[in-house]
Write a protein that binds this DNA or RNA. Sequence first.
DNA 1: ATGGTGGCGCGGCCA
Length: 255
Amino acid sequence: MKIATWNVNSLRVRLPQVLQWLETAQPDVLALQETKLSDDKFPVEEIAAAGYQVAFHGQPTYNGVAILSRLPLTDVRIGMPGFDDDQARVLAATVDGVRVLDLYVPNGQEVGSEKYAYKLRWLEHLAGVVAAELAQHSRLVVLGDFNIAPADADVHDPEAWRGKVLFSEPEKVALQRLFDLGLADSFRLFDQDENVFSWWDYRAAGFRRNIGLRIDLVLLSETLAANCTDASVDRAPRAWERPSDHAPALASFKL
DNA sequence: ATGGTGGCGCGGCCA
């Protein structure tokens, strides 16, 4: 199974790029974040024409997640059980015996802000949700825009970012809890080039200067990590005209 | 440079 995640920053704007990328990359499953679409406006037919079924959970203007799959999506679940969230950030589904959990983790805005506190509360609840999923599914993928860079190697200038939102210690501790539950960062299962990122700020020509962070992750349960054959970030769509500020991250594994 | 760009939607918020 080849599975990918991509924060598209408006599916209305980026649908042609998503369709183009599906055609070239040929993933079996693609998890999207920041669709920014209410469910009645979701482009189901265009995606079906590309050969993908889709589950989605959106709202107007902000947030929104979706899972595209060539094979049927079952046991679709919206949101995190036990966490009353008015923001559409979580979608789960099962594909070919693999449980898929698509996340758009809150950005957090700034350390110490209300949004940062919400991010940490959200991540604390997520750990319980992931633990419950792992207890039920040995084959689990947790992927999406985590809005956290795991380590120094995932940040263009770690010293400048240390303690800042997306790279603060409490955020990294929250991410480490997921690793401690038995999830592996698929990207780090392989030798990788240095300075591989998945997000570059639109401002200050971040992409041109490769000033970015790797915050889009594909985490795998132990069973899937043991069978993982490849993991990467595809920078190409970030160089397209009118791009998302994120690039797709991918992992492949044998079932 | 406490800036910068982009999306939504038409003022200001969010990232």
